[in-house]
């Protein structure tokens, strides 16, 4: 494929003379970033897969299907499910309020949405301990409800929710901004209830953005580590998620098993990445079709 520089020269008909070293420069232009990505992303990925299968596929299968591993995967699924459901429902409400609603302090709200991006996972763990631990502001309330939050799944789910809170909102805000309010108002003028407007106008408009946000949230939740490490107590077979299991196995110098569980997590991430790209291309195609119509 000709480079844009070459096509320009052909179009204008006067190719500037090639300087010495220009060919080398063109090769380096592609080679350097290629090598960078290979060394940073691909080679480590291959290394961990190779290490995970170093003792054969049977050892790999045994490591990822032990009762403790299966329980860890189930805990990851549980915390992810809670966070995804909460952040999808409330993410939709927050995005709608940010774009369509108007009241004083709305900009402050936008800042609050971004705040979790600035917070380290360990700080989230610390916050949960300060709120639900001894002397915490929320401890009396949870005691009254007989709910054990800290060192149990509720705290793990809450911490995971905090971490992934901005993702759905940040996907939806530009989509809602671009769609404009006209269709929603038309539906309302024609007598649609708010619920009907939401179902037949708002949701179809934002569906690809929403789906993308949900997949992104899932990926982020599956991999949550620092916050969950602090609030869970990391009890094997009880409050241990998949990432916590990898960490414990590393600490116990059981590297092969740690690598095996890490590969399962990495595989899930790559699958989610593929899903993200699929959603993106569908959205772009529909966008292009609408633009042409």
């Amino acid at each position: 494929m000709p480079s844009s520089e070459a096509t320009a020269a052909v179009r204008i008909g006067a190719r500037p003379p090639l300087r010495p070293g220009a060919a080398l420069g063109r090769v380096l232009l592609l080679l350097v970033p290629g090598a960078y990505l290979a060394a940073l992303l691909l080679a480590p990925l291959f290394a961990v897969v190779r290490a995970a299968f170093a003792h054969g596929p049977l050892a790999f299968a045994a490591a990822v299907s032990s009762p403790l591993a299966l329980h860890a995967f189930a805990m990851t699924a549980l915390t992810t499910a809670v966070a995804v459901v909460l952040n999808t429902a409330f993410g939709l409400a927050i995005a709608w309020v940010l774009v369509r609603d108007d009241f004083r302090g709305r900009r402050l709200l936008s800042g609050l949405v971004d705040l979790p991006f600035a917070v380290s996972p360990v700080m989230i763990g610390l916050m949960a301990m300060l709120l639900f631990g001894t002397g915490g502001w929320l401890l009396p309330a949870t005691r009254a409800l007989h709910l054990r939050v800290l060192f149990g799944w509720p705290a793990m789910a809450l911490a995971t929710t905090f971490v992934s809170l901005p993702l759905v909102v940040r996907e939806l805000v530009p989509v809602l901004e671009e769609a404009g309010i006209a269709e929603e108002e038309a539906a309302r003028t024609l007598g649609a209830s708010r619920w009907q407007t939401l179902r037949h106008v708002v949701l179809p408009t934002v569906r690809w953005g929403l789906l993308y946000g949900v997949v992104l949230t899932t990926a982020r939740c599956l991999g949550e580590f620092g916050a969950v490490l602090l609030v869970s107590g990391a009890m094997p077979g009880q409050t241990e998620t998949a990432t916590l299991l990898v960490y414990r196995l590393l600490e116990e110098r059981r590297d092969a098993e740690a690598h095996a569980v890490a590969v399962v997590l990495a595989t899930a991430s790559v699958a989610l990445l593929a899903a993200m790209k699929l959603v993106e291309s569908r959205r772009n195609r529909e966008h292009a079709a609408e633009g042409a119509a």
């Binding site: 990925l45 990926a219 991999g223 990432t243 740690a258 890490a262 997590l265 990495a266 991430s269």
Partner: peptide
């Protein structure tokens, strides 16, 4: 990819 891969797994890799 880095947005999808758990950061702990990044370290392991």
């Amino acid at each position: 990819l880095p947005f999808a891969i758990p950061t702990l797994v990044t370290g392991v890799m």
